[in-house]
């Protein structure tokens, strides 16, 4: 009997609707959780997987990459192309290192694979570009990004 009266009371006075509305009202008075993105940026977490960067070697003169091609082999999206050649002192040089961001899936396998930690990931995520050409990152561009995030030294 009491249960039925209670149910009738709830139905007539819209109790559950009132509770819901009270909750939304309370939430309305709390500070907003939405971040106004382009104006208000969040600090990225350490180890965030964003745009790649190339480190310099210990001399700081050239890139750290030894041209082993392991990143190219492990890349599940075939985004990396490494071309090597013979240098003036018969050493192996990386003549071209190209990262195609249009294919990259940011899985981080190249970083895990690199035996000399030459390629790294930065928390840079704003990668929009106006031309298709800008999405191809050459060795020089990657080294420049490396300088920005890790300094000029290796």
């Amino acid at each position: 009997m009491i249960g039925r009266v209670k149910k009738l009371f709830n139905t007539v006075f819209l109790i559950e609707i009132g509770k819901g509305l009270a909750l939304t009202l309370r939430t309305m008075l709390k500070p907003a959780v939405t971040r106004q993105y382009p104006r208000e940026k969040r600090k990225p977490f350490a180890g965030s997987r964003g745009l790649h960067a190339m480190r310099r070697d210990d001399s700081g003169q050239k890139e750290r990459c030894i041209g082993c091609g392991l990143c190219e082999a492990v890349c599940p999206a075939d985004a990396i192309t490494v071309i090597t050649a013979e240098g003036p002192d018969h050493e192996k040089i990386v003549s071209s290192y190209e990262l195609n961001l249009l294919r990259c899936v940011f899985c981080g396998f190249c970083i895990d694979a690199c035996p000399v930690s030459a390629i790294q990931m930065t928390p840079e995520f704003e990668l929009a570009c106006t031309s298709r050409k800008d999405a191809f990152y050459t060795k020089e561009r990657l080294v420049k990004i490396g300088d920005k995030y890790m300094g000029g030294k290796g």
Partner: peptide, 9 residues
Amino acid sequence: EMATGARQT
């Protein structure tokens, strides 16, 4: 993102 570096994939 903290644990893995990525938010979705």
